[in-house]
Design a binder for these strands. Sequence first.
DNA 1: GGCAGTTGTCGAATCGATTCGACCCAAGGT
DNA 2: ACCTTGGGTCGAATCGATTCGACAACTGCC
Lengths: 336, 336
Amino acid sequence: MNIAEIARRAGVSRSTVSYVLSGKRAVSEQTRGRIQAVINELGYRPNAAARALKEGRTRTVGLVIPPASLRLTDMQLGFVASVVEAAARADLDVLLSPSGGDHDRSFERVVLGQRVDGVILMEIRLEDERVTRLRRTGLPFVTIGHTADPEGTCWIDVDYTTLVARCVHHLADLGHRRVALINRSTELIAVGYGPAQRALVGFTEAVTERGLTGVGICCGDDAAAGEACIEQLLEEHADVTGVVTINEAALPGMERALRRAGIAVPRDLSIAGVAARHWAEGFRPELTAADVPTEMGTYAVDLLLERIATPDAPPKHLLLTPPISLRASTGPAPAR
Amino acid sequence: MNIAEIARRAGVSRSTVSYVLSGKRAVSEQTRGRIQAVINELGYRPNAAARALKEGRTRTVGLVIPPASLRLTDMQLGFVASVVEAAARADLDVLLSPSGGDHDRSFERVVLGQRVDGVILMEIRLEDERVTRLRRTGLPFVTIGHTADPEGTCWIDVDYTTLVARCVHHLADLGHRRVALINRSTELIAVGYGPAQRALVGFTEAVTERGLTGVGICCGDDAAAGEACIEQLLEEHADVTGVVTINEAALPGMERALRRAGIAVPRDLSIAGVAARHWAEGFRPELTAADVPTEMGTYAVDLLLERIATPDAPPKHLLLTPPISLRASTGPAPAR
DNA sequence: GGCAGTTGTCGAATCGATTCGACCCAAGGT
DNA sequence: ACCTTGGGTCGAATCGATTCGACAACTGCC
């Protein structure tokens, strides 16, 4: 069932049907009605491939996700979902492409095969080969997170440096003098994962500025790692009274370890951090944290559409600094 | 940059280039080498739309996901990831389409616009309009979960009825006489969500068979709901000594409420269930549970490919009954 | 040497849409 | 009565690949 079939049944030429569909030329009320009736009756929709071929655009955006082997965090998941929602609102489809591992073929098919009008890239590293390759192709793209050299590209990110620094300042204001940063895993830091590195920068700067003593600890992305991490902290740095965390997936384990050790939050220990609202509110007591906005996907899609429309405009950046929601996990430092 | 450009640079016709690419006709070693060199030099990849138009297939599968408004459970997420992975292995791309809400346009574009060779449908309800519509189009599809009338369609599912029954039997064997089922939310049950309903069926049957007393409780998909649910259970059914749960997202809250109430697992209360391994191992003590296999996505893709290859073969079903991994959360019923 | 068979290459048709230029016809102006 | 204008429709070219039939060159056999 194609446009010729519709034209034949309505007794008009193919071009007239096309003009009814696109509205790009006037069609008399009478013919339009007849054609529309046939279309509705047969449930006809134009073939996407033919249309893409002729128009030179696919009305599709690519979303390059990390491979399944690395478990996605809640934040990333919310992000994928919101990208899909936002794209649907703009009548775009989303083509998924895993990257890393041995998924180069997928990346090539999607990007070089002109399957998409633009690409959103997740989980950017400070030095990222995918960015280099994508830039060479000239295809519009937006990255979530930014590379070490961010000027030439279009990106959107959460300002971990500032947020972590604000958490430290908040703790310092409450009288805490010895604080710890619970970061992401050593592996992630080793491969140059931006948020982890920038969190450490913000932490170090704020600690120095306020004259505190600080310790950075790496922690895997799951409850068991969080548990081990708190145990290590209590053992090796028992004098710490304030903790900043950017590792939401470790929160349940941290909570468990603290309870078992008989540490009351925030009486004995204050905790602040950066986390999806869902995790912050699931913590007990509820976590004082900068809630990563769920609309990041929407922003990314908007930015990409803008970039597709005007590819030569200077690249835009969007660095989000959501406010810290004061909840119940931070309080005055205990008297020593 | 298209096939004509490659042909011109290599001094051959377009068809010869195409035959080098597909290998469908013999090409002399010499010409092939020359053409391949040009292809590599320019990094040429055939245009996907043109190829899809001519071949009549897109090498793409659609994945219809629930809308973002309903938070995806970990199980569903693992599923999406494994579908993408499996598709990539088969050199297929995955087109995402949210459904429900006002996302009909997306569904129509993807399905009616012939954007995909087949569709995988998640989160099937007992009566599901999407299945009806899809069946009418004649497009091959596989569902995750099955409808009330499952014979005519191709699906893959976890056998909640049997798994929950086995959990009940396990508890009964340990001497428990009063058991509870912690199910999914009332809303989900109301809209005809299969797993929730079938879990209840399996629970009721097994309870009757073993002459136990059983109570079914609905519970939202988050920690707070799990907490409330356990509080309700302890208050209204204090004599229950065994719990079966299919609500993995509520586990952290359940754990917290139990600890606060001073209930020791499994000394005072045994818990068994169905959950992604990740959740079962994150529980304390580790949860005795049927681990939902992470390869479900792989199976679904395989089934779909088979269906695309032979659309007229009788539809296949795959009902998975993974073994229950005995961990630390179940033990003998307390002496009364 | 002529003929059948094989191998390698090419030209042209095709997939299903969009879009430009051309055409027809009726209305309005002079 | 003729010319212009513009609304409505059509025919044909086009996008970038695949693939079939045709053809040329070469091989081997009688």
